[in-house]
Simulated scan of single mutants.
Amino acid sequence: MEFIEDDELLENAKDYFRKAEFPLVYPAKSMAVAVIYALLLEEHYAINPFDSLRDLDLFLGQDPYFHVYDAHPDEYDALLEWVLSHDNWKEMGWAPKTCEYFRLECTKAGLEEVMEKMQCA
């Protein structure tokens, strides 16, 4: 795990999509994951992505490196614009893994799958 300064935040967040490699750099990783969740919440539940990114409880308090939109609006805006400029963003870098976690955590089908696996364990 690596930590970065604010001036490197955007480029390191983009790296989360550019390559699925270690080390993951914080808080850039948290920013990238927040953007993915915000976009998927919009897609699945019509929740405004900026509302999600402003929610301190987006990750239920489980990510100490997550900063809300208002802490880094320029970086979030630039990352959102960059991500959405790629039609295949869900297939880039670590995004497929994060999309799968979203599916398991935030959709009825995913939750049913998790519950079914837990009953078998």
Rank of each mutant, 00 (worst) to 15 (best):
A13S: 14
Y16K: 11
K97S: 08
M31F: 02
I4M: 12
L41N: 07
K19I: 12
P23D: 07
W82T: 10
A32H: 06
V25W: 07
A34S: 03
A71Y: 02
H72Q: 07
P73F: 04
P96G: 14
W82C: 02
L41E: 09
A28N: 04
K29T: 09
P64A: 12
L60S: 06
R54D: 02
F22H: 15
D63T: 01
L84K: 11
L24M: 08
A20D: 14
K29P: 02
C99W: 03
E100F: 10
K14L: 11
D7I: 09
V83A: 05
C106F: 14
V114N: 08
W89H: 09
V83K: 02
A20G: 08
A71N: 03
Y26W: 08
E105A: 12
W89Q: 07
C99I: 04
A28W: 06
L53C: 11
E11L: 14
Y45G: 04
R103Y: 10
P96R: 03
E112Q: 13
L58F: 01
R18H: 05
F17I: 10
F22A: 13
M92E: 05
Q119R: 07
P23V: 07
D87T: 11
A34F: 00
Q119G: 15
E116I: 10
F17S: 00
Y65D: 05
S30R: 00
K19C: 06
S85P: 08
S85R: 06
E42G: 03
A13Y: 02
C106W: 13
Y16I: 15
P96A: 14
